[in-house]
Design a protein around this nucleic acid. Structure first.
Length: 478
RNA sequence: GCCCCCAUCGACUAGUGGUCCAGGUCACCACUCUUUCAAGGUGGUAGCGCCGGUUCGAGUCCGGCUGGGGGCGCCA
């Protein structure tokens, strides 16, 4: 049975790169009829926040990723929060200490800094020199007497480590770059490297799918797996997600959290779909996928080794594509919070108004790129337009006033106030008067909506209704 | 500094030795449709980082170089 996990640390909102890691794990699990586990890595007491855990969970759900085991729903292998598993790590650590696989290191911050510098000077990796590996009894009791705190370090053997990565193939690390690393901090909390391995082992994780930034940590993990006598899981290191300048996607590149995109009015389906295309593709170069299709098509073999740049423009296109293809009802529902925020609707919207807004949205649907744009695009249907001076001067003058005045009487005489009739009557008028349609349509659009661009003129007039339309034109012209 | 990974249009990718004077999508440009803005349609600009090697033949295999990324913490 395939078991994979996504293990974010709650030190901020869900990052796009992490969302992609979560997504790939999720797809892999579903594709292989396995389990997808959510685990919270909150061993960094300083930076971890409960609010972030909640936010991450919320955003994962928003994207459409569901898990089978996790801190919120429990499961057979819990707890799923590392802060609640401290005793478990301690137990493993004590066992390793007894076996002589790890040892106590009493070095102070200053000492460590110095050994690090020395190592650098010698052209060695800036790690630990193993000073405390073989301390004499006397030395140990001296340190204890001084009340020095200690950490637990793993005795790193000098051997080369091979990884058979499912995405990258064989990766070989020659031993000498690894130094004895910390597995338990002086406060009794495990380091990330130790906790992941213990958890992956106990939670029976079969495939560790994570970002390439963990590739260099993998030898450490393998060493720990071996130390506790556990079987290795499969590893798959996915390419990274970069910003437009080819560096790690970060705040400098603008919004990097899933939350931000959600608030900008992106559809989860579009986000899900776009993210899946980063570092992965099918032979047909297909672009639009439903969740089900993605699950069906996904495979680690088709994951790219090279990192991918997150392209906001393409996401935006995909979002507008999804908005165009989504049923009006749903777009309306999703737009409500955005309309409320702009004070265009009240908490309660009656059926009539709902229909009215839906029709307004439908007139603009093909143009909406994000839900956040909806209020602006349909604003003039819900409140009186403001007429910008510059456009007013361009479009409203003696001649067009006269035309608009005549349009008013035409509109007033239309009984069946439907766009086909409205259009026909106005076009007839243009022909009779020998006017270019554009000389009539543009001022009319402006008079009715206060805009120089907008939805289909006649659809707009129909929806606004005879009374409102006439009122607006009169107000502007007379 | 040391170790590891990577390399096809500006971006995401297809391509697994000949069918590739490299295909699709976004972006960009032009034309078209048109009452505006979009959407749509048609067409276009643009790429195998470089140097060697293997081979009858290389985007595709091998080596080097260059470039980019990542790691080396009592962060995760």
């Amino acid at each position: 049975m395939v078991r994979v996990r996504f293990a974010p640390s709650p030190t901020g909102f869900l990052h796009i790169g992490n969302a992609r890691t979560a997504l790939f794990n999720y797809l892999f699990a579903r594709k292989n009829k396995g389990k997808f586990i959510l685990r919270i890595e909150d061993t960094d007491k300083e930076r971890s926040k409960k609010e972030y855990e909640e936010a991450i969970i919320e955003d994962l759900k928003w994207i459409g990723i569901e898990w089978d085991e996790g801190p919120d729903i429990g499961g057979e292998y819990g707890p799923y929060r590392q802060s609640e598993r401290i005793d478990i790590y301690k137990e493993f650590a004590e066992k390793l200490l007894k076996e002589g696989i790890v040892y106590k290191c009493y070095c102070t911050k200053e000492e460590l800094e110095k050994t690090r510098e020395d190592a650098q000077k010698k052209g060695l990796p800036p790690g630990y020199d193993g000073k405390c590996r073989n301390l004499t009894k006397e030395k140990i009791s001296q340190y204890e007497k001084e009340g020095r705190s200690f950490v637990l370090r793993l005795k790193v053997p000098e051997e080369k480590i091979e990884i058979n990565d499912l995405i990258r193939g064989k990766v070989i690390f020659e031993g000498e770059n690894l130094t004895d690393f910390v597995i338990m901090k002086s406060d009794g909390v495990p380091t990330f490297n130790f906790a992941v391995v213990i958890d992956d082992y106990l939670m029976k994780i079969t495939h560790v799918i994570r970002g390439e930034d963990h590739l260099s940590n993998t030898p450490k993990h393998i060493l720990i797996f071996k130390a506790i006598g556990a079987k290795l899981p499969f590893f798959a290191h996915m390419s990274m997600t970069l910003g437009p300048d080819r560096t790690r996607l970060s705040k400098r590149h603008g919004a990097t959290s899933v939350r931000a995109y959600r608030e900008e009015g992106y559809l989860p389906e579009a986000f899900f779909n776009y993210i899946s295309l980063l570092g992965w593709g099918t032979t047909e170069s297909k672009e639009i996928f439903t969740k089900e299709e993605l699950i069906e098509e996904f495979s680690l073999e088709r994951c790219h080794k090279a990192s991918a740049i997150f392209d906001k423009e393409k996401l935006l296109w995909m979002n507008s594509y999804y908005i165009r293809k989504t049923e009006l009802d749903k777009i309306y529902q999703l737009s409500i919070p955005f309309l409320k925020k702009e004070n265009l609707i009240e908490d309660m919207v009656d059926k009539e108004k709902e229909e009215y807004i839906k029709r307004a949205i439908s007139l603009e649907q093909e143009k909406i790129k994000t839900l956040k744009e909806v209020p602006f695009l349909i604003e003039f249907f819900l409140k009186e337009p403001e007429y910008e001076k510059e456009n007013y001067e361009k479009l409203i003058n003696y001649g067009t006033k006269k035309i608009l005045g005549e349009i008013v009487s035409i509109l007033e005489n239309i009984d069946n106030f439907k766009k086909e009739d409205i259009e026909k009557k106005i076009r007839d008028y243009c022909r009779e008067k020998g006017l270019k349609t554009s000389d009539v349509f543009h001022p009319l659009r402006f008079a009715v909506s206060g805009r120089t661009k907008g939805p289909d003129l006649f659809g707009m007039i129909e929806l606004l209704g005879k009374e409102k339309t006439v009122e607006r034109i009169k107000k502007l012209v007379i």
